[in-house]
Design a binder for these strands. Sequence first.
RNA 1: GCGUCGGUGGCAGAGUGGUCAAUUGCAUCAGACUGUAAAUCUGACGGACUUCGUCCUACGCAGGUUCAAAUCCUGCCCGGCGCACCA
Length: 404
Amino acid sequence: MFGLRSLKQKPVDTEVSKVEEILARGVSQVVDMEALRKKLLSGRRLRIKLGIDPTSPHLHIGRAVSLLKLRDFQELGHTIVLIIGDTTGVIGDTSDKDSERPLLTRDAVRENAKTYFKQAGKVLDMSAVEKHYNSTWLSKLSYNEIGEHADQFSVADFVARDNIKKRLDGGKRVSLREILYPLMQGYDSVAVHADVEIGGNDQWFNLLAGRKLQSRFNQEPQDIVTTNLILGTDGRKMSSSWGNTINLTDSPKDMYGKIMSIPDELIVPYFIHCTRVENNRIQDIEKKMEKGDNPRDYKMELAKTIVALYHTEKDAQKSEEDFVKKFQNKDVSDARVVSVKSNTLLKDVFVAEGVVSSRNEFNRLVASGAVSVVGADKVSDLKEIATDNTYKIGKRRSLTIEII
RNA sequence: GCGUCGGUGGCAGAGUGGUCAAUUGCAUCAGACUGUAAAUCUGACGGACUUCGUCCUACGCAGGUUCAAAUCCUGCCCGGCGCACCA
């Protein structure tokens, strides 16, 4: 099915400097660097696999580190094989978890999967990507076959994994189904005849499972490239369960704002892992910041670059202007406008508009001096009557009220 | 099935009859400061009201004991660990 296209494809690029950069930038671990280098320089068109489980409707820029790496490989002319883990997603990977992951429903997974190819398309040229759902082959396996696969692994290997061991030691439950996960991911590699598999560095164990199973099926074991995991907006590992992600589907404004809120130390790592900005430029930025340049300016450049990558140049430009307006110049001209009857309590307006979640919260905010009339005084009366004004709560929330 | 330990606020995890709307950490929100929604420091963090107070709802579920229960008792549901049964 790819015969026609491959005839048209340009030959594989084996320029040493390009290959070397790919093997270095953002890469955490490689199973056999020499072997991989040789493969990449051989001129053979490699099949490079990445599996993504649709455990949330959004991909975040941490997951996209692998996608960017794939993009590099794609540009060299290799075949990218993208697998949506609609079966593995149901089972749930425990690699990065310190507790059992709940079994997702098939429907939830299918729903999440819907936009994944589209999201991946922000980074990859999807017209040249081979796309699969792993239910295609995983749902056909019989117990006989699964048993045979399972025989390649020992329980000890699994139990020795750090996070599993920690859970067992702590008296936490480890479900048998969790053991199945590496088998499934490993079999994916067999099914698509992967030459190389990419994954986050928490995937090491699962990636190795692919090698084992491929050997069992008389395939040459895949090479493995793991990419670094990046930290989230709060400086902890970026993970959907911690709500510190920057999603590919975030609006330009949100994305820009979230990037501006990362700690300064993450600026350079983000440039390296989340953008395709050239190394020279990144080193330049690093030096300048060391010399005392204001990191904010580079963070803005970073934010703009990333927004442009997932949206458009125009969006990026606009997000930056909005950010400057709102946070640097404290402009509130874009505050939402609501009409209310005269003699309404201010707190009622805020609660009704969902700006604050309860009257108690409003009271607390007033008590801490967070509520103010723009251009005038702070609100200090809990029973303040709403007036024709723009109100602000903290730095982010604002509301313009019109009395009718 | 038996034994045993446990189920607490968004999460983790204290509390084991009254002083508990519940210590603490993380997350969140606000204030100060600032170079930014960073860092740091300070405060708040169930709801309602006539707000230095009162009332309501909350500690797996349902009952019970008590002037008083997250805390004790009974039953149920769910989980860990150990043992066994069956094959």
